[in-house]
Simulated scan of single mutants.
Amino acid sequence: MSYQEFLVERERMDALLRRGYVIKRVHENLSGAFIEFALPTPAASESKQPLQTLHIQTADARKYVSSLLIQQMKRSS
């Protein structure tokens, strides 16, 4: 995997975050990580949330997701 691939993956994540999405779920396996993004909405309408899923393959992008999760957790507490 190249640095250019990381930049593409990072930009895709950043674009969703700019649109107001937050990380909802991370599922990692041997082929990378599947990151689910959702728009924050009240719990009553949670089943109708529009989800966006990204398949992240580079190690740097997976580390970037970890840093995003830490920032998200700090903001919510």
Results as ranks from 00 to 15, higher is better:
A43Q: 13
K24W: 05
Y3R: 08
K48L: 12
I23A: 02
L16V: 04
I23E: 03
Y21K: 10
E11G: 08
P42V: 12
R19F: 07
E28C: 12
E9V: 09
R10E: 14
A43L: 13
Q72A: 05
L39E: 13
R62D: 01
A38V: 10
K24S: 15
L51A: 09
A15S: 07
V65G: 00
M13D: 05
D14Y: 02
K48C: 06
I56H: 00
Y21M: 14
Q4T: 09
S67M: 10
S66F: 06
S67W: 11
H27R: 10
K63H: 03
I70V: 12
G20Q: 07
P50F: 12
S2K: 09
K63F: 03
T53N: 10
M13I: 13
K48P: 06
Q4L: 10
S45G: 15
F37Q: 04
S47V: 07
R19L: 15
V8H: 07
S76K: 14
F37K: 06
E9M: 11
M13T: 04
Q49M: 01
L7A: 04
P40F: 14
R19Y: 12
S47H: 02
I56S: 00
D60W: 03
S77W: 07
T58M: 01
A33S: 15
E36I: 10
L69H: 12
S45K: 10
Q71V: 00
R19E: 11
L68F: 04
M73E: 14
S77L: 11
Y21I: 08
S47F: 01
M13C: 15
T58S: 11
Q49C: 01
L16H: 11
G32H: 03
E11R: 13
G20A: 08
Q49H: 01
L39Y: 15
A33G: 07
E46S: 07
V22C: 04
A43H: 05
T53H: 06
L17I: 15
S77R: 12
T41E: 13
S66T: 05
A15D: 02
R19C: 11
R10P: 02
K48F: 08
V22N: 05
V65F: 01
F37E: 04
A15P: 00
M13W: 03
E5I: 05
S67K: 11
Y3S: 13
I70F: 14
V22G: 08
R19A: 14
Q4I: 06
I35S: 08
M73G: 09
V8K: 10
K48A: 09
E9K: 04
Y3T: 13
R62P: 00
M1G: 07
E46Y: 12
T41V: 15
E36C: 02
L16K: 07
V65C: 02
Q72L: 08
A38Q: 06
F34Q: 00
L54F: 06
P50Q: 14
Q49Y: 00
S47E: 05
V26P: 03
Q57G: 08
F6L: 02
D14T: 14
P50L: 13
E28R: 14
F37M: 09
S76T: 07
A44E: 09
S45T: 10
R19N: 10
Q4E: 14
